[in-house]
Amino acid sequence: MGGAKGTSLKARRQLRSQATSTQIADAPPQGEAQPVITVAGTSMIADLAGALYWPDQRLLVVADLHLEKGSSFAARGVLLPPYDTLATLGQLSAVIARFDPKAVIALGDSFHDGEAHQRLSAANRDHLAALQARRDWIWIVGNHDPELPCALGGTVASELAIGAINFRHEPTGARGEIAGHLHPKARIAARGRAIERRCFASDGERLVMPSFGAYTGGLSIRDAAFLRVFGAPGFHAHVLGDRQLYTVAAARCC
């Protein structure tokens, strides 16, 4: 799978955030203890919906929305229910309401295919615009959506660095990297029962985000692809439970 291919239309600039690390983080909107994941010394809040929030920057990160995946299959004769974009945007707007971020990064594969944004219904398009209002919105391109039109609103970029953290779609294994693309999921089995959930995969230095889209399946974190990202088997799965986040050794999963 190729990364972002350069085109004349797309602004392929690298954004350097002006934000400084001295910025005071707002108190989290909820009173409960927020599960924290540390990436290269930076603390982030892991949301159970599969989003990551960086309080210092008031920045929300979601990966692999795969909007219009349903209609993408429909065009090929598999008439999946056309409610996935509605469901994904619904989830996203709930997370945005929770954190009220100043900026949102969609970490690539936000649209399931190159024409997906054209298939957005008017209602969904309005919904998206409402979410983008009053905040910065950055579309990082992915292999599913290497080109994104300006009409979508927000800024298009191939990657983004803020302080020690680098945001890109496909993980390279670099220190301080937050990526998506792999859709990590963890399967835990015991006593003849098994549970499978999406998860953040991290070794403390780099992190792979869970996929956020309603129809996005997952890849077991025991797949060799994760070993390539982390270099050693000692990484963790931060599993999205119903009530809380559970941190499990990747080797414990199957």
Partner: peptide, 22 residues
């Protein structure tokens, strides 16, 4: 026999505790 219950968060909690114990 396998205990029939839908696998749920408790299974995850157990695995997480194992990690803590380790």
């Amino acid at each position: 026999e396998a205990v029939y219950g839908e696998a749920s968060d408790d299974l995850l909690a157990e695995a997480a505790e194992e990690l803590v114990r380790t």
